[in-house]
């Protein structure tokens, strides 16, 4: 498997990262070199081996469903780059 120009464009779009077209080759080269190294894993037989998502493998850690204090609205908005009327503000989403 090898990453090409179109793959870089697609991954950048999925990751919401703007990458100028003149850098596609640079990224493809680096990613291919790293991915080629990772192909090493194909030497290992993993038939019937369950994936291990984390090492403690605890599941369903629950807590009582109780209302607890949380950040007040003004604190939660304090770091927002743009805010107004108690909301986060973003560029207009709905087109005319």
């Amino acid at each position: 498997m090898s990453v090409n120009h179109d793959d870089i464009k697609k991954i950048a779009s999925l990751a919401r990262l703007e990458i100028p077209e003149d850098q596609y080759a640079h990224y493809a080269g680096q990613l291919n070199r790293i991915l080629e190294y990772m192909e090493k894993l194909n030497e290992v037989n993993t038939d019937d081996v369950a994936p291990m998502y984390n090492s403690l493998e605890r599941t369903n850690v629950t807590r009582p469903d109780q209302v607890r204090p949380s950040l007040p609205q003004n604190e939660a908005l304090k770091n927002a780059p743009l805010k107004g009327d108690g909301f986060f503000r973003v560029p207009k989403v709905v087109k005319k």
Partner: peptide, 21 residues
């Protein structure tokens, strides 16, 4: 993003989780 994307998830991400075990 690449190793998690459709078509590559099993080949890279899932494989890595199996060898991790």
């Amino acid at each position: 993003t690449y190793v998690l994307s459709a078509g590559y998830y099993d080949a890279y991400y899932r494989k890595a989780l199996q060898v991790r075990r």
